[in-house]
């Protein structure tokens, strides 16, 4: 009982200390200061960011698959080189996002294992198939366009390593977006067959892209604390609306029709879109999108097939270190 009483007193002290630290932490956030890896942070802040940054990293890596599907079939050497470079950029984004997540105390291996075990999520958009070359243009134009809308505010995220990673990612993404739009422009100025290919791709990707911004504000789980911590600065619906307003004129310029015949422009100039089919979104999140199984299988295969290579690299590094120590001892 005595001991228990002591323990309780200690726990109380810690609690009071944490409350004081949490208040200081929030004051720093409110003052727009950046939180750095060695700074004190609430456990929930660490957990939220680890989840968000690693999901972002997984999305970059899984996102290589739908576009990678067209590298070997790109229709010209210029397009082939540009697409390969683009997918390589995504790999680079994944790599430094994992590095940013690691600063919060979880290793890349653990994060990747969670994804391969199906315990961590990646963006639902990559569970849709790339069927024609126009899908490559559409992904650049819309998927990267939507990603930029989401990511520009993250350049001011309260967590320093994530914010800095986002600055670089956004620069490259905006280049990819222009590249995608240029593919669409070429198709829309080409033959009737090419233009039809572009319209078909837009028809298939439009609604899944709108879902990329996440569930409507009324049902979003994470928004409140993320907003307080300045991880998230705009709501899902705000960003979605911003994206639609920016995209409609781009589609008009291409001469393509947004597959939402009931869309209207309101008095403030905003394009009001129809109800999104959230059942589809939930199904894709639950693992029932057209490509969920293929994407996971491809990532698992790469990981398993590469195991002996990683083991060889580690074994060689160990042997080398051992030899160097032995040499130094002589």
């Amino acid at each position: 009982m005595y001991t228990q009483a002591l323990n309780m007193a200690e726990a109380d002290d810690r609690h009071i200390e944490d409350v004081a630290r949490a208040a200081q932490f929030q004051a720093r956030i409110d003052a727009e200061e950046r939180i750095e890896p060695n700074d004190w942070m609430p456990a929930a802040y660490r957990k939220t960011l680890t989840r968000q940054i690693s999901q972002h990293a997984h999305s970059e890596i899984v996102g290589m698959l739908p576009e990678g599907n067209w590298i070997t079939r790109a229709p010209s050497l210029r397009r082939k080189a540009a697409l390969l470079a683009k997918v390589q950029d995504e790999c680079g984004h994944g790599l430094y996002l994992y590095a940013a997540a690691e600063t919060l105390g979880t290793s890349r291996e653990e994060l990747v294992d969670a994804m391969l075990a199906g315990k961590a999520k990646y963006s639902s958009i990559f569970n849709y198939p790339t069927l024609t070359w126009a899908d490559i243009g559409t992904i650049g134009w819309l998927v990267d366009g939507a990603a930029i809308m989401n990511q520009i505010p993250l350049c001011r995220c309260s967590y320093g390593p994530y914010a800095r990673a986002m600055i670089r990612v956004c620069k490259e993404e905006s280049f990819h977006q222009r590249q995608g739009y240029e593919i669409m422009l070429t198709l829309c100025r080409g033959s009737a067959e090419q233009k039809a290919m572009a319209q078909d791709a837009l028809n298939r990707w439009w609604w899944p892209v709108l879902m990329m911004f996440g569930p409507p504000d009324a049902t979003s789980q994470h928004s409140d604390t993320s907003t307080k911590w300045k991880i998230k600065r705009f709501s899902n619906d705000e960003l979605r609306q911003k994206f639609v307003d920016a995209t409609v004129p781009q589609a008009q310029y291409l001469g393509l029709a947004i597959p939402d015949p009931d869309m209207t422009q309101d008095a403030d100039g905003h394009w009001r879109y129809s109800e999104i089919d959230w059942t589809e979104f939930k199904q894709v999140l639950a693992g029932n999108g057209p490509c969920n199984r293929d994407r996971m299988a491809a990532r698992r295969k790469a990981h398993e097939d590469g195991a002996w290579v990683r083991e060889a690299a580690a074994a060689y590094a160990a042997k080398r270190a051992h030899r160097q120590t032995a040499q130094a001892a002589e």
Partner: peptide, 27 residues
């Protein structure tokens, strides 16, 4: 370029793509 997205580790995925890009550029 067939390796892109499927290499044993991310660093090697990038390295193989890099070499592929050099070669396609030479071609």
């Amino acid at each position: 370029s067939e390796w892109c997205g499927h290499a044993p580790m991310l660093e090697e995925d990038m390295a193989l793509s890099n070499i592929a890009l050099d070669l396609i550029g030479q071609a």
